[in-house]
């Protein structure tokens, strides 16, 4: 009878046992006590491992919080609830944590932006388009419409609308900021959720050119800046809002020919409806 099978079995089993015994001994000698707070904080986190906090993942963030090198409200995804849960474990005050939401600073969709005379047949991805002569729109500053931000969003909070411009679903958005990094044109910016006035354009061209390339571009006329008492500054043919000085009532929204500066939500209308 052939005993090879039995011999093989016992040999490998025996070796395995010996090594297991050695490792068990080593584990006794070399065990590292881990701070039990780390596991608790880790449990309170969303566990999406999105990296929005700037750490390698939720566990790494928990380690950093316990060691004191990350703030208890450092998780942008969990928002106020998570911040308070973590603060409770750590025994500190969470402070006010205003939710941050990405805003898309371009409204030049397929019907507003002027297309080039050539067609783009490459991969539908903003990073590819921005390398290959900058996509098919004439504007070199605006949204490419390839949807890299939609792909980057781990929470499905970003959708392309019918016009080819991404939109944020605020209920689903956690403020992790992955879309900001994904955009090669840098038109997505994080803002506190209660900000209402934005300049929905990033075009730095001179007035004539920007008028030619897009129907909703900021022309750089500066009419909003002149009336705003420092709330809007003109930088290189583009209005930039200084939110600390901004007074919404001083901005002449109806004077902006292209509607580049606009309110996100028309609060006064809502009040009438209610």
């Amino acid at each position: 009878m052939d005993y090879t099978f039995l011999i093989a079995l016992t040999t490998m089993g025996g070796l395995g046992l010996i090594f297991a015994g050695g490792l068990a001994l080593a584990d006794r000698k070399l065990r590292v006590e881990e701070n039990p707070l780390i596991a608790k904080v880790n449990e309170a986190l969303p566990g999406a491992n999105c990296g929005g906090c700037g750490k390698a993942g939720c566990y790494d963030f928990a380690v950093n919080v316990v060691e004191g090198s990350a703030p208890v409200n450092g998780c942008p995804v969990g928002g106020t609830d998570t911040a308070q849960a973590v603060a409770l474990i750590m025994g500190v005050d969470a402070g006010n944590n205003i939710k941050m939401i990405p805003r898309i600073h371009c409204r030049g969709g397929n019907s507003e932006a002027v297309k080039k005379m050539v067609n783009y047949y490459g991969p539908i991805s903003c990073s590819a388009m921005s390398i290959v002569s900058g996509g098919d729109k004439m504007c070199y500053y605006g949204c490419l419409g390839g949807g890299d931000c939609v792909t980057a969003c781990p929470f499905d909070a970003m959708v392309m609308n019918n016009d080819g411009i991404p939109e944020v679903i605020e209920e689903l958005c956690t403020g992790c900021g992955m879309c900001v990094q994904a955009c090669p044109r840098d038109i997505i910016e994080m803002h506190p959720i209660d900000r209402n006035v934005f300049i929905f354009c990033r075009n730095h061209d001179d007035p004539r050119t920007s008028k030619d390339v897009c129907a909703v571009a900021c022309l750089g006329c500066g009419i909003c800046s002149r009336k705003s008492d420092g709330g809007v500054e003109m930088v290189d043919n583009l209005g930039v809002i200084n939110y600390s000085l901004l007074d919404e009532s001083k901005i002449p929204f109806d004077k902006c020919k292209t509607g580049a500066i606009a309110k996100l939500r028309d609060v006064s209308n809502e009040e009438i409806v209610n």
Binding site: F19, A26, L30
Partner: peptide, 13 residues
């Protein structure tokens, strides 16, 4: 088997 065990040991160490 040998390598896996040794790496475990080095990791603990």
């Amino acid at each position: 088997l040998v390598i896996a065990s040794l790496v475990q040991f080095v990791e603990m160490f």
